[in-house]
Amino acid sequence: MIRRLALASAALGLLAAPVAHAEEQAEMTKGEAKLAKMLEGRVAGKPESCITMIGSRPLTRIDETALVYKSGNTIWVNYTKTPDAIDDSDYMVIRKFSGSQLCRSDQITTRDRFSDMYTGFIFLDDFVPYRLADKEGEG
């Protein structure tokens, strides 16, 4: 019964916006959809060539999409020049040349978790900061 009502509503166009949104998400890869969800409600800032990495906070891999680093309320995204080299089944070996900073000039190689064999190279690009959007009219 509920399913029939939902189908009838869709036929009447009452669910047009959610259907359009679902179609839009269907065109995204799994990684792109995961990143979009992480960045919901955030706006991109000016890209920077380096970010400061504090302590042991992890650099998150999103398969075939981007590298993500969270620092406070900012989510830094590096879309890389080689997103297809980002694979969750590999681990990254990062060679930094700037101390506690990770820069686009640093080298990242990937290795297979099980065989420890070299699998690829990730070429970094600029890091894009995403911060929560200001909520105008509130406060």
Rank of each mutant, 00 (worst) to 15 (best):
L132F: 10
A44S: 14
V93Y: 10
Y91V: 04
N73A: 13
G139M: 09
S71F: 10
G45R: 02
D88F: 07
V43T: 15
D125W: 07
E40G: 01
S115M: 05
K37W: 06
S105Q: 09
D112R: 03
E64V: 06
R131Y: 00
G72R: 02
T80Q: 04
S89M: 13
T119Y: 06
K135T: 10
L39C: 00
G45L: 03
I62S: 07
L124H: 08
Y79V: 00
D125I: 00
V68H: 08
D84K: 13
R61M: 13
G120A: 03
G72T: 04
R42H: 02
M92H: 02
D126W: 04
M28I: 03
T82A: 07
I62P: 08
E138A: 09
I62N: 03
W76M: 04
D90L: 01
A66V: 08
A10D: 15
V128L: 05
K46A: 13
D87G: 02
M53P: 05
T74H: 05
K96F: 00
L124N: 09
A11C: 08
Y130E: 12
S115W: 10
E23M: 14
E48A: 14
W76T: 00
E27Y: 10
V128T: 06
E23K: 11
F97E: 14
F123A: 12
E23W: 12
G31F: 00
S115R: 12
A22G: 09
I75A: 08
P83H: 11
L102T: 09
R57C: 00
R95W: 01
C103W: 05
T29W: 03
P58K: 15
A33P: 04
Y69N: 02
A10Q: 15
S56R: 12
R113A: 10
I2K: 06
D87L: 03
K135M: 12
L12V: 07
F123C: 00
D90S: 01
L15S: 05
L132I: 06
L67F: 03
D63E: 15
V128I: 13
K70F: 09
P83W: 06
L102P: 02
I75W: 05
A85H: 03
A17R: 15
I51W: 11
L5Y: 10
V128N: 07
P18W: 12
F97S: 13
T80S: 05
Y69W: 01
A36S: 13
A26K: 07
C50R: 04
D84S: 11
Q25L: 15
Y91N: 03
G31K: 01
D112C: 01
E23V: 09
G72H: 09
K34M: 11
V68F: 05
S49E: 12
P58C: 08
R111L: 07
Y130F: 15
P129L: 03
F127I: 06
D84M: 02
A66P: 12
M53I: 03
F127D: 02
K70V: 07
